[in-house]
């Protein structure tokens, strides 16, 4: 695997096709992260395209001493996702998780309702708590990297995550800590 800095240097020196390597490497986490923030799979690919295109145009401004490429890319993705929510006021929940077997049994319906509730409450969290929750719980990013993406201190990340989890647990009347 070619190292990232070499790929970036090659792109800046005019090897446009090398950018495909970065797209292929990061498409999965970027699309997933956007999908989990905007909660609309129909527009998340368009936003992801925008994210990579912006990254290509601004590649010369990327400074690897300030952050890693993935942190820089995730920051673009986070900002574009929040802008999309602001513009379209996305509230539709179309990405419901389905439990496969026996859809009509009361147990399954209850479980399905619980998953839908989780989705609803996640998307009703304040923006900054939601993005931290998505980055920490779904993307499994370290707190230090989340702090860089959110441009806040690590302690703020911990606080936001704790508040988000507490709100979810309270809203869902859970008797255990998330």
């Amino acid at each position: 695997m070619i190292d990232e800095q070499t790929i970036i240097k090659n792109i800046i020196n005019g090897d446009v096709e090398s950018f495909r390597l970065l797209v292929e490497r990061y498409q999965k986490p970027v699309i997933r992260m956007i999908g989990n923030i905007v909660n609309d799979r129909h527009i998340c690919e368009d936003i992801a395209q925008d994210v990579f295109f912006t990254a290509y145009r601004k590649l010369k401004t990327f400074n690897n001493e300030r952050s890693s490429f993935s942190t820089w890319l995730f920051t673009i993705a986070r900002n574009k996702s929040l802008n999309a929510i602001k513009k379209k006021k996305l509230i539709a929940i179309d990405d419901n998780i389905e439990i496969s077997a026996g859809k009509n049994s009361p147990d399954i319906l209850e479980q399905q309702e619980f998953l839908n509730e989780l989705d609803r409450h996640l998307h009703s969290l304040p923006k900054n708590q939601k993005t931290v929750f998505v980055l920490a719980e779904f993307e499994k990013l370290p707190y230090e990297q989340i702090a860089q993406i959110e441009n806040v201190r690590v302690t703020t990340v911990r606080t936001r995550l704790h508040r988000a989890k507490r709100k979810l647990a309270k809203a869902l009347r859970l008797d255990w800590e998330i």
Binding site: F19, E24, Q27, K28, I31, E137, E139
Partner: peptide, 14 residues
């Protein structure tokens, strides 16, 4: 939420 489906043509579109 950690699973994702990606359109194979995504890199080509970008």
């Amino acid at each position: 939420k950690h699973q994702v489906e990606i359109n194979k043509s995504f890199p080509d579109k970008v």
